[in-house]
Every structure is written in structure tokens, then in C-alpha cells.
Simulated scan of single mutants.
Amino acid sequence: MKRKIYSVMNNILQEKIYISPIDVIMGVGILSVKDYESWRFGHVPYLEQVCKSNLSNLSFIMRELRTYAK
């Protein structure tokens, strides 16, 4: 999983000059564009509800993003 996260972050960084957590979560495949749009427009009360993973995996991704940024 760690290798996939870093690969996604490298790809995002090559396309843009910044990395957002949403882009990483979508790149890993935990969140679809449709579900993201539903959350963004207020049809879903919280993002974790539409993520196809548990909170510990999301927390792991955020920790790796912080590590990558450092």
C-alpha cells in the first residue's frame, strides 16, 4: 500500500505543483469522482461515508502524505 501511495503522490506532483489529500485518496482508488462530487455538493454529510476503506487506512494515507511532504 505504501508503494502505491508514493507512486500516486509522485504522479500528482508531476502534474501539479501541489498534492491534496483528496487527490491521493482518489488516486489510490478509495474514493470515486462521483462520490467526491456528491460529498462536495452536500449530498453526503461526511467524506468518510463514501470512502471505500476504513478510517485506519485513511489515517495511514494522511501520515504518509505528511512524511512525503517533510
Rank of each mutant, 00 (worst) to 15 (best):
N57I: 13
Y6F: 07
M1A: 05
V24R: 02
E37S: 07
V33P: 03
N10I: 09
D35S: 02
K70L: 07
A69R: 09
K2H: 02
C51W: 06
M26H: 10
L47I: 15
Q14K: 15
I30E: 06
Y18G: 08
L31W: 06
S53C: 13
V24Y: 00
Q14F: 06
G42W: 12
P21V: 01
I12T: 00
M1G: 07
K70Q: 14
R63K: 09
V33R: 12
C51E: 10
S38T: 00
Q49T: 12
K52R: 08
M1S: 10
H43Y: 14
N10Y: 06
W39L: 02
D23E: 13
I5L: 04
R3M: 12
A69V: 01
R40K: 12
Y46T: 13
Y46N: 12
P21D: 01
L31A: 08
W39P: 07
L65I: 14
I30M: 11
Y68A: 00
I22K: 03
M1P: 00
K52W: 02
G27R: 06
L55S: 15
F41T: 11
C51S: 01
S53I: 06
K70F: 14
S20F: 05
R63W: 02
V44I: 13
V8L: 00
Y68M: 06
M1C: 04
R40H: 11
Q14L: 08
G29C: 02
L65K: 12
Y68T: 08
K34D: 13
Y46D: 14
H43L: 15
M26C: 11
P45Y: 15
K16P: 07
P21C: 07
M9C: 06
G42Q: 10
G42M: 15
S38G: 05
Y6S: 04
F60S: 01
L55Y: 11
K4S: 09
L31Q: 04
F60W: 03
V44A: 08
R40I: 07
L13A: 12
K2P: 01
L47A: 09
V44K: 02
R66S: 14
A69D: 00
S32C: 10
P45W: 13
G27V: 06
K52V: 05
V50T: 03
A69L: 11
D35C: 01
K16T: 10
N11P: 05
Y46Q: 11
I17N: 15
L13E: 13
E64G: 01
I25G: 03
G29M: 05
L31C: 00
V50P: 09
L31N: 01
N11S: 09
S38R: 15
F41K: 12
K34N: 09
L65W: 09
V33T: 05
V8E: 01
I12E: 03
Q14A: 12
I12C: 04
L47C: 07
L31M: 03
